[in-house]
């Protein structure tokens, strides 16, 4: 990246550009992948500095010797009286103490399909019943094999009545099996989060779960070539499944062969089983 672009990106994130310059940068971000990658790396670096600064500031505040609250004992008698009044009020007003628990997760939705014949998918972590290896068409084979990607860190504890970040909204929909909502809330994520390999993997899974294997494959193809080894391996597995779901059997087989040959892949055994069923 040349010096001019570096300065342009820096000024863009510092919000120092004129309106015309800003529009021009945004056009380039949309059309020039190298420029976009440089901008995202810049955003990450600034994010790293802020994370560090925040942690440092919190530590500095927490490590300070605490000052006593002036006059904290002055109104002790008044406080006791107030406490008594509150207890009495509480006694005569016997209402429930806590908010109602969060409603149970809604069942997974089944949106209009972009490829027919694909049965709906279960929420992440739930297994599908095993299918008979003989006479099963690709769509059924996909349905019996596909389990939406999950990992422990996806579980969020955000409640329905609390302010949420876009990431939490996306995650909450995904982990509840509300894949349509997850796809919709993906659009609200900031650009760096949208482009993160993990987010791309989750979006592709949501698309697979809502029977959109072609769109899923378009995301998974670059992800499977990603420099991030973990997500690349998962990307290859789900790409093979999306090819299976689209009925591209020869491509699916070729992809599964590669996974079967890869001893480091966590999907090696699944690929072997699936290949047997495909024969």
């Amino acid at each position: 990246m040349n010096e001019q672009d570096r300065l342009l990106i820096e000024r863009y994130y510092r919000q120092e550009l004129t309106e015309a310059e800003r529009l021009s940068v945004e056009q380039r971000l949309a059309s020039d992948p190298a420029f976009r990658a440089a901008a995202q790396l810049h955003e990450k670096a600034i994010g790293a500095i802020r994370l560090w600064g925040r942690a440092d500031l919190k530590k500095r505040l927490a490590d300070r010797p605490l000052k006593r609250e002036p006059g904290s004992r002055k109104g002790l008698f008044v406080h006791v009286l107030l406490l008594l009044a509150v207890v009495v009020a509480w006694w005569i007003w016997p209402a429930p103490l806590v908010d109602a628990p969060a409603p149970a997760p809604a069942p997974p939705t089944v949106p209009p399909v972009d490829t027919p014949a694909l049965p709906p998918a279960a929420p992440p972590g739930r297994s599908q019943p095993a299918a008979s290896p003989k006479t099963i068409p690709a769509a059924e084979l996909f349905a019996s094999t596909f389990k939406p990607y999950t990992e422990a860190s996806l579980q969020v504890t955000v409640r329905d009545n609390t302010p949420q970040t876009p990431l939490n909204t996306f995650l909450q929909s995904y982990t509840r099996g509300q894949y349509d909502q997850a796809i919709a809330s993906f659009e609200l994520l900031p650009a760096t989060l949208k482009d993160a390999p993990k987010t791309q993997l989750l979006l592709a899974n949501a698309l697979l779960a809502t029977r959109q294997p072609v769109r899923a494959a378009a995301i998974l193809a670059p992800l499977s070539q990603s420099a991030h080894a973990k997500y690349a391996a998962d990307g290859r597995w789900y790409l093979a499944l999306s090819q299976l779901a689209s009925g591209e059997l020869s491509r699916a087989r070729a992809a599964l062969e590669l996974i079967r040959a890869d001893a480091s892949s966590s999907h090696q055994a699944e690929a072997r089983d699936l290949l047997k069923k495909l024969q």
């Binding site: 990450k44 994010g47 790293a48 560090w52």
Partner: peptide, 15 residues
């Protein structure tokens, strides 16, 4: 909080 946990660890480790 709008950041993946592993991304946060990676960025702090880089710093």
């Amino acid at each position: 909080d709008d950041i993946w946990e592993e991304e946060r660890d990676l960025l702090l480790a880089a710093m």
